[in-house]
Simulated assay, not measured.
Amino acid sequence: MKIIILGGFLGAGKTTVLLQYARSLISHSTQNGNPVVILENEISEAGVDNQLLSRNHFLVKNIFSGCICCTSSAQLEQSVREIERNYSPEYLLIESTGMAYPDSVRRTLRDAGSWDTGIVALVDCKRWHKVKCAMPDFVTSQLKDASVILANKIDKVNENEQREVIADVSRYNSSARIFPISAIKKQPDELWTKITSLCLGKG
């Protein structure tokens, strides 16, 4: 089982990206049953994102009792082991809450097992400067260990602003590949394939 952690700030578009990514993984999988399982981390029990994913016919599991990078690390490990045992998916996509630290989530998983694990981080091009000024340490923690960073919502900024955001983001993680996208549009399957390869050390 391969694990991709999807991190990013609140409102950056994680669920929209997750829907596209999961569909692409499923379409290219040769595995029967449940090739992709999604693990949601919702602080609120309302589970709005979970309802959206379920309506789109994805198998979704949830962790509700707190942020998975801190208070629920044991529950995270237990949930991942249960998913592997009960469903044996080819891929597990973990959408962490916008307040989680993806590097801590990956550390928990690496300490718990031998899963191949990668991080994709999202930034909101429109709100980038506001977010980085308001929460500089949090921004660093979100981006520093990502293999791939998706600069989302490029439809909301002009070309100069887009270039400025991407240049600024690269200062937080010079080794990550940064892809500008507008997740409201369908992205090519080649992009998702490249992201998977980069996250799992094959790109």
Results as ranks from 00 to 15, higher is better:
Gly33Val: 08
Gln51His: 09
Ser44Gly: 15
Gln20Asp: 10
Leu19Asp: 10
Leu18Val: 07
Ile63Phe: 07
Ala46Phe: 07
Gly66Thr: 02
Leu59Phe: 03
Asp49Cys: 14
Asn56Lys: 10
Leu25His: 05
Ser79Lys: 09
Ser72Pro: 00
Ile83Glu: 01
Leu39Cys: 07
Asn34Arg: 13
Gln20Tyr: 05
Ile68Cys: 06
Val60Leu: 13
Gln78Ser: 03
Phe9Ser: 03
Cys69Ile: 00
Gln75Ala: 13
Ile43Leu: 15
Asn41Tyr: 12
Ser73Gln: 09
Phe58Glu: 11
Ile5Trp: 01
Gly13Lys: 04
Thr16Asn: 06
Asn41His: 14
Ser72His: 01
Phe64Lys: 06
Leu53Ser: 06
Cys70Ile: 00
Val60Ile: 14
Ser79Asp: 01
Pro35Ser: 11
Gln20Thr: 13
Pro35Gln: 06
Leu59Arg: 12
Arg23Pro: 04
Leu10Val: 04
Asn32Tyr: 10
Tyr21Gln: 13
Arg81Tyr: 04
Leu39Ala: 11
Ile43Val: 15
Ala22Tyr: 08
Asn50Cys: 14
Val60Met: 12
Ser29Thr: 05
Thr15Ser: 09
Gly8Arg: 05
Lys14Ser: 06
His57Ile: 08
Gly47Asn: 12
Val48Ile: 15
Ser72Gly: 00
Gln75Leu: 12
Tyr87Thr: 00
Ser24Leu: 09
Gly66Val: 03
Gly66Ser: 02
Thr15Cys: 11
Ile38Tyr: 06
Tyr87Ser: 07
Ser27Thr: 08
Ser44Pro: 08
Thr15His: 05
Arg85Tyr: 05
His57Trp: 04
His57Lys: 13
Glu45Leu: 11
Thr15Leu: 03
Gln31Ala: 13
Ile63Leu: 09
Cys70Tyr: 01
Ile63Glu: 10
Ser29Ala: 04
Thr30Met: 14
Phe64Cys: 08
Asn86Ser: 07
Glu84Val: 01
Phe64Trp: 05
Leu18His: 09
Leu6Trp: 01
Asn32Asp: 15
Gln51Gly: 08
Tyr21Pro: 14
Gly66Lys: 02
Cys69Ala: 02
Leu18Ala: 11
Leu6Arg: 01
Gly13Asp: 02
Leu10Ser: 10
Asn50Thr: 14
Ser29Phe: 04
Phe64Pro: 04
His28Ser: 15
Pro35His: 08
Ile26Trp: 05
Asn62Asp: 12
Ser54Asn: 10
Asn41Gly: 14
Pro35Phe: 07
Leu19Ile: 15
Pro89Ile: 08
Cys67Val: 00
Thr71Ile: 00
Asn32Gln: 15
Ser44Phe: 03
Leu19Cys: 13
Thr71Tyr: 02
Val36Ile: 13
His28Met: 13
Leu25Gln: 03
Gln31Asp: 08
